[in-house]
């Protein structure tokens, strides 16, 4: 089908899957921010998710598909574009493009690597079994997600991994959060400048909010 092979079709797929993934990280962020309301808040949130049962698996499957499409085509487009270029100019100059636009595939792959680590760390809980929720004492009969998170981010090594990955996420979003408007054909020229500005501000908001979690714990502001 054209959607999966054509240049615009795949671009649209990138935008749509990207948008849905932004939806995911939005919900994920809102949930995680409950950590600032204390252990009870985040533990309740975790329990709530856990209780969804089968729905969790449906959700995970959808996420897997979205990631698969977004990553597969992202890498494919990158390889095609690289093949379309011939040798470099002696003087390479760009005027309007951004660092984030030029590094989408790399920030994307960093995010992928991080995602795998993140799943192993908090979902499968094999990287630091000693402080995993399954091995921590239950609180009111529920898993103590709060302690797992806090104990993790108190380790500089883990916190740094998260912060670096979240910077990559910020860069990725600062292109992605506005680029989709153009890709879906909603830009009318001058309007894209405003969209771009809003997109960048949003990317900063996402970036700061996410980084706040490991940073505040590392700084012992959240304990």
């Amino acid at each position: 089908m054209n959607l999966f092979t054509s240049t615009v079709g795949r671009k649209i797929l990138m935008a749509v899957t990207g948008l849905l993934l932004i939806g995911f990280i939005t919900v994920h962020l809102l949930g995680n921010l409950s950590i600032f309301w204390g252990a009870d808040a985040i533990n309740a949130y975790a329990k709530h998710l856990h209780d969804l049962g089968l729905l969790v698996w449906v959700f995970r499957l959808v996420m897997l598909c979205l990631f698969a499409i977004h990553i597969t085509f992202g890498v494919q487009l990158y390889l095609e574009n690289r093949a379309a270029n011939s040798e470099d100019y002696a003087i390479q100059k760009t005027l309007v493009t951004t660092f984030s636009a030029k590094t989408m595939v790399f920030t994307g792959l960093i995010i992928l690597a991080f995602l795998l680590y993140h799943l192993l760390h908090f979902t499968v809980q094999v990287t630091n079994p000693a402080i995993s929720a399954t091995n921590l004492p239950l609180v009111d009969g529920h898993l103590d997600v709060f302690s797992m998170v806090v104990l993790s981010f108190q380790k500089v090594f883990i916190a740094v991994i998260y912060i670096v990955a979240l910077i990559a996420l910020f860069l990725h979003l600062s292109h992605g959060l506005q680029s989709w408007v153009q890709t879906l054909g909603w830009s009318t020229g001058p309007s894209q400048d405003k969209v771009t500005a809003v997109g960048k501000i949003l990317a900063i908001v996402y970036g700061l909010a996410y980084i706040a979690i490991p940073l505040f714990i590392l700084a012992r502001i959240v304990k």
Partner: peptide, 13 residues
């Protein structure tokens, strides 16, 4: 695409 051009990724250069 068939002619070997790349894909547009909204650089606006």
């Amino acid at each position: 695409l068939d002619e070997g051009f790349g894909n547009c990724t909204n650089h606006y250069e």
